[in-house]
Structure formats: structure tokens, C-alpha cells
Design a binder for these strands. Structure first.
Lengths: 144, 144
DNA sequence: CTAGCTGCAAAATATTTGCGCGAGC
DNA sequence: GCTCGCGCAAATATTTTGCAGCTAG
């Protein structure tokens, strides 16, 4: 039985481009934007286009191989680990790391009955300064 | 004593444009994007430009009169209520409402010592289907 | 006069899409 | 042959910026 009304029966081949994008994303610990993935993948596939990177990131998300991070900020970022976990984002440089905290599994229950929405999920993002930016920031404050 | 290195001494007048933007944002319950604010404000100030709207939203955030929502999604949204609170976003239509749940004041403590970041804050966003989209979605599933 | 603000338009940024070609089944 | 995916370029969407003129103090 398949979910009706959703095109989940689309045939998808593991093309070289798709494979390399997935490999590069799995290989790193950070959470790159499409642009950064493009730069890395191009070292191995110099002729790949940015459009292909965007298209394949979308496909890989649909396949559940990766996840698109639901973070604030202007650029979308991708995570090679498809499991649910939280993130912390540097407000200065945009760097994103995993947040070492377990998922709040029951927090959505608090909303049942109090919202008109049909709840699907939630997303917790911490903001802060990464070590590099924290150092610069601190130095500036003390000196200024 | 002022925060050093930050231009917080800038003189800012409450111009007609700025006042109308603030009034319109305070008047509504939803959390409009700059574009929607522009359309509403233009009914009262037909000659205002979109650039002015963006500039003033930025200024009003700095003044603490409004807040820019740190939500995922491609467009920035603004909240006329400057107090900290969480939101729920419809994944279908992008509508954003306040989430009826109290702030998790101590959650940032869980990260101290376990992250290299200097923590500034956090942000919890729920995702779901608003009543309108939920109805359409449900109908589609049953019919499909 | 000066600093801040405006409207307008162009630029910048990030992402999506149309198109024609090529490869695999 | 048909479908899917590709590279390329153009289009789209959103936000920022340069500029010259205006206004309040």
C-alpha cells in the first residue's frame, strides 16, 4: 500500500552525480549549503552543474538518505545523517553543528488540544557563537 | 554604559512610514513577510517603497519594537509582539501562528559543558497543517 | 547645514525551471 | 523508444544597496 496522491513511485537511478553528492555529504561533519556541496563535488566531477546539485539534494531528501535542515537563515543546509537531531548555529559565521541533546519526544503532546493545527513535528535550534567567533567577539568587546 | 563596538547611539525618528509599518504589524495576529507588510502599508501610504519597508523592519527590530522570526523557510517573517514565544508553521501554506506553550527556560543549561559554543539562545518551531490545509489534505488522502 | 530618511532602480543572493541532448532499460 | 537525468542558461524570489533629493532640528 502506497501513500495516495504522492509521487513516491518515481524511478530513481543512483547516477554518478547523485552518488558523489551523497558521499561528500556523508563524509563531512558540518552541514553545508548547496553552494558548498557544489564546490566539493566539483573537485570530483568538474562538469557538474549547480542545478543538478539542487535537484539531487531534493531527490536524496525524498529518498530519506539525507535531510534538509529546517534552520532559520537565508540559505538551506543539508545533513548527511537522516536521523532526527537538533542543531546549534553560530549567529556570526553561520556554522552549524549538532547539538548534544536528546530529542524532546513528548513536547508535541503539550500542544494537542491547545492548537487548531494538526501537528507534524517540531524543530529546536540553538543559537550561539562558535569558538572562533566567540574569541573574536570577546576580544572586540574588551578592546573596544 | 553602552555596549562597545555597536552603533546603538543612532538617532532614529518615528517617521510616518515607520509608524504605519509598526501599527500594521501590531494590528494583526499573523506573522507577515515583508512583502505582505508592504501590501498592507501601501493602502495607507501608496507611495512607500519596498526598500523602505525592509529598512524600517530592520530598524524596528533593533529598537526592540518587533521581532524577526527565526523560522525555517525561504522568507523572513515578522512579529509585532517582541516577547519571546514559540510558533507553529503550516508546511503547506506557510501560515504561522503562536504556539500555546511556555518557553523552555532551562533548556539551554543542558548544553553548557557539552558544546564548544557560547550559547546565546534557542528557538523552537512546530510544524503542522493549519485547519484549512488539514481539511484539503485529509480529503485528498481519502479520495485518492 | 547636517544627519537621517525616502523612493526608485539596480544589484546581490539563493533557488528553480525550461530546454534539448544523451544514456539505460 | 521512453523515461529519467544531465548541463546550461534564463527566470524567479527575496533582500540589500547606491544614489540623489527631501525634511526636521
Amino acid at each position: 500500500m502506497e501513500i495516495k496522491g504522492v509521487a513516491c513511485v518515481k524511478k530513481m537511478r543512483m547516477t554518478p552525480q547523485r552518488r558523489v553528492i551523497l558521499e561528500e555529504l556523508r563524509r563531512v561533519n558540518d552541514h553545508p549549503a548547496a553552494d558548498e556541496i557544489y564546490r566539493r563535488v566539483r573537485k570530483r566531477l568538474p562538469k557538474i552543474s549547480l542545478g543538478t546539485v539542487y535537484r539531487n539534494l531534493e531527490v536524496l531528501c525524498e529518498l530519506g538518505e539525507i535531510q534538509r535542515l529546517e534552520l532559520s537563515g537565508s540559505t538551506k543546509r543539508y545533513d548527511g545523517v537522516p536521523n532526527k537531531h537538533y542543531h546549534i548555529r553560530c549567529v556570526e559565521c553561520g556554522r552549524v553543528d549538532d547539538a548534544p541533546i536528546a530529542p524532546l519526544n513528548q513536547i508535541e503532546d503539550d500542544l494537542y488540544g491547545t492548537t487548531v493545527y494538526e501537528i507534524i513535528g517540531h524543530n529546536l535550534e540553538f543559537t550561539g557563537l562558535c569558538p572562533q567567533c566567540s574569541r573574536l567577539h570577546g576580544a572586540r568587546q574588551e578592546a573596544g
